[in-house]
Write a protein that binds this DNA or RNA. Sequence first.
DNA 1: AACTCACGAAACATAATAAGTTACATGAAT
DNA 2: ATTCATGTAACTTATTATGTTTCGTGAGTT
Lengths: 136, 136
Amino acid sequence: MRKDSRLSRMLHILIHMDHMEEAATSEHIATMLNTNPVVVRRTMGCLREQGYVTSVKGHGGGWRLNVALKDITLLDIHNALGESSVFTIGLSDEYTECPIEKAVNREIGDALKASEDFLLTRFGEVTLDKLTLAKA
Amino acid sequence: MRKDSRLSRMLHILIHMDHMEEAATSEHIATMLNTNPVVVRRTMGCLREQGYVTSVKGHGGGWRLNVALKDITLLDIHNALGESSVFTIGLSDEYTECPIEKAVNREIGDALKASEDFLLTRFGEVTLDKLTLAKA
DNA sequence: AACTCACGAAACATAATAAGTTACATGAAT
DNA sequence: ATTCATGTAACTTATTATGTTTCGTGAGTT
């Protein structure tokens, strides 16, 4: 199942942008991510909608960070990207009345929910400025 | 991203099988899951490899539970199905030397790992007999 | 022995979706 | 006017869970 690598990619870029004097073009960012400018615009657009970055057209245009790294958490970016679900595990979608199936799906669903809460809480505790200090 | 519903489906079926006198045919199970006998054989085959069920060919053949429900956890079945990863979130797979990218991927990777451990621990605490008692 | 039932397995088709790509419109600076 | 860069629509590709077809094989039944 193909993974959604947008969170990883966007965090990477946001931190780089913090060091930049000039606006970063989609082309430039695409090169850094080994992808395509259109993919960059599409994904960065999600962050712009939430105000984390701004974009300017034309000469000298491109993308700029609009919020300090210390004020952005992994959770913020995760949410901005609007991921639907974090898990590859799903529930059977039979719309039956079978009480066993319901019990199974409730158990799995509750566990997934708890695990997701755990993950998102952790994401919420990490601000991007911490990652610039991290040792490689 | 399409979800993997095998865990949900298999738990559902295993619990039903506990009540059955006769062996359940793939055809019968497929009807319960609103799917196809071949899909059933394919998925149940994973459980057979770990000894949770047995299969018999020919007349009167089919699938039987081979281990008491109280001795099977959600984790056992999850493992038997051999899921690769539980998350839709992945890391950028650029094989760069960029320390920022590495720091980002380590942070996300650690969080995913912790969340997965949390989920699997919980799966390991639930035996299938508990689900038969659960109220709908 | 012939027949039927049911699993085993290979090969292929379908559906969903993240990502990649092409093409063109629009706006801003030179 | 020209060039640069984003905005967006439309299409293609890659991946993978699931679905489907088909044939082989073993086990009871008649």
